[in-house]
């Protein structure tokens, strides 16, 4: 494990003894993890290992469905977001999410990006215009859509839609963005543009990304966590994980023997 003191890492979020249950199914077992601020942290592991489940704990998406239960805590800036008095909506306003499949609203490109601001009560047209443009520039989509902001977002290509979803997640200045396999539904060129974007974004926001591709984790992330059967097997700097993994399971996974 990484020694935080030695490496001078500022944690943005800390997961402490997290257990998660889908009904009676124990999906996450005693997870401990910290997510360094303004870095990219990747969650890797074979299908069904719980990496997406863990990601969705960070913005409490599990609260939407009955029968789900958390134990333990996730601290974001030292505040436990799983605490009793914390409204999940409050957490989701601090932590944005980009989903596996692009899911733009069936509205105009402009309205897709503006929606997060409208939820926060922003109605000033000039301010909206400015923020929408900033977010679209930051998500490297502005040049492609600036002349058709009021056309339907569903006319965009898959990669453009995913960048639109990133702009939508970015416009409200979140403290953290969760990416749930953001490129698994995209072609290689679109994947490259999304990856470049993620690297650019870490300058301003903390990023936690689930990926099924070890190459993507190696290219993108500063830190990598390897999960297996609902347990956190190993967490370290990405280069350490991929060169000298401490755990035998990690080594088997990255060398392709399990997966």
């Amino acid at each position: 494990m990484v020694d935080m003191e030695v490496n001078q890492i500022q944690p943005k979020a800390e997961v402490q003894n997290l257990n998660f249950y889908y009904g009676s199914f124990h999906a996450l077992k005693n997870i401990n993890l910290f997510v360094p601020a303004n870095k990219v942290t990747a969650l890797i592991g074979p299908s069904g290992c719980g990496k997406t489940t863990l990601l969705r704990c960070f913005n409490r998406m599990h609260d939407l469905y009955p029968g789900n239960r958390y134990e333990g805590s996730i601290l974001i800036d030292s505040i436990n977001t799983l605490g009793r008095g914390v409204d999940p909506i409050e957490v989701r306003m601090r932590v944005s999410m980009v989903f596996q499949r692009p899911n733009p609203f069936p509205k105009s490109i402009y309205e897709n990006v503006a929606y997060g601001l409208r939820l926060r009560g922003v109605n000033n047209r000039l301010l909206l215009d400015e923020k929408v443009e900033d977010a679209l520039v930051a998500s490297a989509l502005w040049d492609e859509v600036k002349n058709r902001l009021f056309e339907s977002a569903l006319n965009l290509s898959g990669g453009q839609q995913q960048r639109l979803c990133i702009a939508r997640a970015l416009v409200t200045d979140p403290e953290m963005i969760l990416f749930d396999e953001p490129t698994s539904a995209l072609d290689p060129i679109a994947t490259t543009s999304i990856e470049e974007l993620v690297l650019e974004l870490k300058k301003r926001v903390t990023i936690l990304i689930v990926t099924h591709s070890m190459h993507q984790a190696a290219r993108l992330s500063d830190y990598t966590a390897f999960m297996y059967l609902g347990e956190m097997m190993e967490f370290d700097q990405t280069k350490t994980i991929f060169t000298t993994p401490a755990n035998k399971k990690t080594e088997e996974y990255i060398s392709g023997r399990i997966g």
């Binding site: 913005n59 998406m61 939407l64 909506i89 409050e90 989701r92 306003m93 944005s96 999410m97 989903f99 499949r101 899911n103 733009p104 609203f105 069936p106 929606y115 997060g116 939820l119 926060r120 979803c165 939508r168 997640a169 409200t172």
Partner: peptide, 17 residues
């Protein structure tokens, strides 16, 4: 589709919104 609901919830919308 549920993905539409999740997109709105993830931005901090209430159920009614």
């Amino acid at each position: 589709p549920n993905s539409l609901r999740e997109a709105a919830y993830a931005l901090g919308a209430t159920k009614w919104q």
